[in-house]
Amino acid sequence: MRARPISPEQRARLRRAAAGAPRRPWTFWVLAILFGAYVLALYGPMLCIYVLSLQDIRGGLVFPMKGLSLHWFVDLFTQVRTGDVKGGFQRSISLALLVTVLTVVGSFLAGLAFRQRFKGDGVVFYLMIGSLVAPGLVLGIGIGLLFQYLGLPPSWYTSALGAHLSWTLPFGVLVMFAVMSRFDRSWEEAARDLGATRWQSIWLVVVPILAPGLLAVALFGFTLSYDEFARTLQTSGSLNTLPLEIWSMTLNVTSPSLYALGTVTTIASFLIIGMCLGGIALIQRRRARHNPSV
């Protein structure tokens, strides 16, 4: 390195860096407070309803807490007026899992395709963006009318599935773009060079290396579908998904059982996502343990 005169300012900075505890600029503290406020606003209201859902029969929609019981959870699953929460829940989970699998496969393959230019790539890309930004209800109406016109009965596993995919797939492909940009093409070339067939190189090299990115796509797919409302409204047929159930509840239920539902669905989605992440961690640990040379 060439020697260069060092200004007193730089020297001070270097000394601070060497001391290991550089002074933070005032903007750090301002932004830290903003971040804290944001997180508080993100979690605060939700924590409120989790707490309020634990009231007893006297409970209302606002603080202060009245008693402590599981009354509203029982109410949620026994009262007729709250609708078919259990069925909606099952359908939503099944639909979300189905959407997740299809989204991961479809986005992965599309990600492979979009790595190079091909005839018509621009058309597909802009169709995809279109599908992403189209108002959900409009698309739902279109799909509903299309099914009606074709004489097909709409249901959660046909029309609603397609409606969800038209939203989760473009999202997944965008995530794949970001993931793929960090993938070194020479890995794939090396695999081919070493004698792997196209499928072997995808299965043994590309997929394992991209696994974390694919997991991100899966999480996106699951949450987007599990929570999807506007596109489902006109496409789910006679049986409701969970968000539709919740929607109808918000219109006619004004008791803390609404909050109880919020608590239950939150726990459920955390459980599912936790199980996915846990399963992957387990697989990785087992893989590491089964590493034959250890």
Partner: peptide, 28 residues
Amino acid sequence: RTAMMFQSYALFPHLSVRENVAFPLRVR
């Protein structure tokens, strides 16, 4: 029946050294 050694080596990051070396035999 040629083999190439890439500039960045292109070693598979998810496989151990032995699995990397055994890879061409595995796909055969």
